[in-house]
Structures are given as structure tokens and as C-alpha cells.
Design a protein around this nucleic acid. Structure first.
Lengths: 238, 238
DNA sequence: GATTCAAATTGTATTAAACACAATAACAAA
DNA sequence: TTTGTTATTGTGTTTAATACAATTTGAATC
């Protein structure tokens, strides 16, 4: 009668994406483990086992704050990863046993994603964890199935942004040039856009407000800075 | 050290949607339980606890076949429901204990959805379970948080179909009139569409192939039947 | 069998958006 | 002052979306 009561553990993992003006980056934390008597270092997504009685969304928020210092980040659940094989790597098994103080069998994780301005302050170092930004197209092998989770998160970003591109402004710095914005569109959708047409289309939007400030130190005509006005944007939506 | 190892159970629930030419329906199974000495009857989504070592996708497929007889239905994971409160109703607790032969604490469920032609044969009755179609806008209170799960599934259908309307043909019968197709668009997107413009737009698609057969028994000009040609559709896509 | 009804189907015009691409402006470095 | 490079502006073409009038037709009614 215990056939189906597999000892399943549940965790959350947060894929926090940022944009540096050129490409997408993801927020990872360093991991140190021991395998075969040798210490090794690699990286993983900020994530952890959920606490008794905790809502999934709350768990994601808590874990992200604990491991990166980020607060008030809108997190969105996007996929559950539950393959029995996802915790089969001896490195991962031993690391789990060491950190959880117990034997951990199959673990299903709920993937959350968030878009943040890459300039936001994260904890460089706290409680032994260190967070850092890594370009998503230059990821080394990560712990567990975290490479796959990130790939799915980026795919979800594409899907969501194609329905509502305004969510992309969460990735842009407070002031930005139209070219930076175009770069984001191009990297997210994997296309090349005509600079002239993109410029005209964006500048006509009432919620893209021009600033007086211009680019400095570029070897060509300096671009104007703009900012995204959320209030105006919401008013244009019904 | 057992603080966070909550005894969590994991299940899958399948939201199978169909279209009867007028409105969306969902496939439910009857449930019989006992509460306060009284037998009660209500309905729930086809779903169950996952088996040891089973892939999530496999579990969803298996459960759907076992409870409804449906096979080869493309299931898509769409959301995890894990509120600690979702299994707090005494009816649900007692029903779980009776069917699972054990005490069941918190249960997190992974929601799957599928689109099927409503004419497909389902098991009217087997292993004590009976499946039936119920309009999504006329649902009674269901077991657990299944009303909420269905609402999320319909929302997801909207989202996905707005990106790729071709998925809607999975809901249409093999032969259909343009008006039936328009009804589906209208109910899914919650809008009213101009019959003339919709007609022209659809008929010009190479993958909407006209049949010789026409509607019968209607008190007005009989509409032509069409069918969706998947091959042609795939060729028009890169 | 002629007439009527309601929806299917066809026609036509307007409007808005997407797209291609040439031309001009402006900043920093040489 | 000239050059290189990107920002910004201009213009025309193409395509898609939308509105709405007009015509066709199967079945029911008179």
C-alpha cells in the first residue's frame, strides 16, 4: 500500500533574467561540493526545498531573497521539472545530502522566472553564497537540470513577450536608447529589425518619453535617452 | 532536521477540453464519497497520485487513459497547484484516505491540459469511474481546487491559441462549417467576429479544404463543410 | 409553386500597419 | 577639416484588418 507514496521532495528554482544592452544574462549562485575527495566549484540557479505549509509562490520569493538579496521581484511560475533522472548525478546527490542533512530521493522542482534590471544590487556574498550574472548563451554545465530549466525560461520569455512586449521594459535600465531597446527585441525574438522602422514605431508611443540627456563617448552621432512611463502605458491599455 | 521535509504527495490532473459547436466543455469523472455518514456524489478532473519513478508526462498520460479510456492525446503541462489549503475540505481528505488507503497530507498537483474532438469515444463506465462532458461555463462546485484548475486551463488555451490558432483545429470535428469555426474563435477569445470577413479570411487558407458535402436540415442556405489539412498546414509553416 | 426567412457567400471601399530603402544629421576620432 | 559610423528623418509600397452593402440559397410557410 506504499507503492505510490514515493518519497518526493519539492523545491523551487528561480530563473532571474537580465539584459546588459547586448545580451541576456541569468543570475546564478556559486556552489562548492566534494566529489571523490576533490573539492569542485560550479554554479546553479537560486533555489531550495520548500518549507512545510508554505505556498509555492511564497517559497520562490523567500528563496530568491535568501540567496541573492533581491526583494520585490515579480516571480512567475512557468514549468515543473520532475524527471526521476534530474537528480542522478553523484555530484548533485552528495551535495544534496551534505546541505540537507539527510538522504534526498526524487525531487520535483517548480520553475519560476523573473525579469529584472541588471543594475539592481544583488548580494555579492552572504551566508556563503555568491550571486553573479552569466550570459545565457555562454553557460557552462550547471548543477542538476538547470541548463534545461534556463532554456525553458528563455523560451517562455519569448512566448510571453510576443503577446505583451511591454514586459520587456522590466529588463531595460531606467534610461535607454532606442538602439538598446532594439537590441533586446532582436535577442529575445532572434530576428533582425530595421533600425529606421523600429525607431519610428517606438518614438511615436506616448509612453516612450524622450529625455534631454544623450549618449556620451561614442564615435558617432550620440543617441537620445528615453524612459518607459508605466503610468502612461497603463492608461493606453483598457 | 526534518523541518522542511514535509510529507508532500505529488499528483497530476488532466483538463481535457472539447467543443460542441457552441461552447467549450471539459471532461470530468464522477466521484462518490461518504461524509458524515451520508453518501455524496460530485465530479472531479481525471487525475491521480504519481507512481514511483514515473515521468510527469507519463503519469498524466497513464492517468487519463485509466480514467477516461482516452489514448494518444497530446497533453501539455500548464501549471502547478500547490497551496497547502487545496486539500483542506473534509470531503476531499476523507475521500483521499479511502481511495489511497493511507493518510495523505499536503498534495501538490501538476496541471495538464489537452484539446480533443468531443466525438472521440470515452469510457462511459469502467473500473467504477464514469467520464462525462460538462460545459465549462456551467460547472458545479468540483472536488479540491478543480474549478480553479479548469479556469487556469481555459486561460492558458486563450494564451496559446492567440499565438497559434491552428491548435484550435484539434477541437473541431473532422468536417465543420466556417460558422462553427467562427463560434470557436468567438468563445475562446471572447469576442464577436464579422461573419463575412472571417469567412473570406479562412476560405483563402490553403489548408482549409472545401468538401462537397453541405449542411442539412437548416432553415436557411446550407453551409459547406470544410476540413483542416494538417499536411498542407505544416508545409506553409517554415 | 411562389414567397419568406435567415444565414451563407460575394463585393467593394476604407484604414491602419508593416516593410523596404534612400537621404540627411551629428558626434568623435583621425 | 575630413572620415566613419550610427542616429534620425522621409517617402513610397505592400499587406492586412475592418466596415458594411449586396447577392445567393436551402428549407419552411403560405
Amino acid at each position: 500500500m506504499e507503492t505510490e507514496s514515493a518519497k518526493i521532495h519539492l523545491s523551487v528554482d528561480c530563473t532571474v533574467l537580465g539584459f546588459d544592452g547586448e545580451r541576456l544574462e541569468v543570475l546564478l549562485i556559486r556552489r562548492t561540493g566534494v566529489e571523490g575527495g576533490e573539492e569542485f566549484h560550479d554554479m546553479k540557479l537560486p533555489g531550495s526545498v520548500i518549507v512545510d505549509g508554505e505556498e509555492l509562490d511564497d517559497a520562490a520569493r523567500r528563496v530568491l531573497t535568501e540567496l541573492t538579496g533581491l526583494k520585490n521581484v515579480p516571480l512567475t511560475q512557468f514549468h515543473a521539472f520532475g524527471s526521476p533522472d534530474r537528480t542522478k548525478d553523484p555530484r548533485d546527490i552528495h551535495w544534496l545530502e551534505a546541505t540537507q542533512q539527510m538522504h534526498v530521493g526524487r525531487t520535483v522542482t517548480i520553475g519560476y522566472m523573473a525579469l529584472v534590471k541588471i543594475g539592481r544590487s544583488i548580494m555579492g556574498d552572504m551566508e556563503g553564497t555568491e550571486a553573479l550574472w552569466v550570459p545565457v548563451d555562454k553557460l557552462p554545465p550547471l548543477a542538476f537540470d538547470h541548463n534545461q530549466i534556463i532554456a525553458e525560461a528563455v523560451k517562455m520569455l519569448r512566448t510571453l513577450a510576443s503577446m505583451d512586449p511591454s514586459m520587456l521594459y522590466a529588463l531595460m535600465p531606467r534610461k535607454f536608447t532606442v538602439t538598446q531597446l532594439r537590441n533586446l527585441y532582436e535577442v529575445v525574438f532572434g530576428v533582425r529589425l530595421d533600425p529606421a522602422n523600429f525607431y519610428k514605431k517606438m518614438v511615436q508611443m506616448p509612453y516612450i518619453v524622450p529625455l534631454e540627456e544623450r549618449e556620451k563617448g561614442v564615435a558617432h552621432r550620440a543617441a537620445r535617452y528615453y524612459r518607459f512611463d508605466k503610468n502612461t502605458y497603463n492608461k493606453t491599455r483598457i
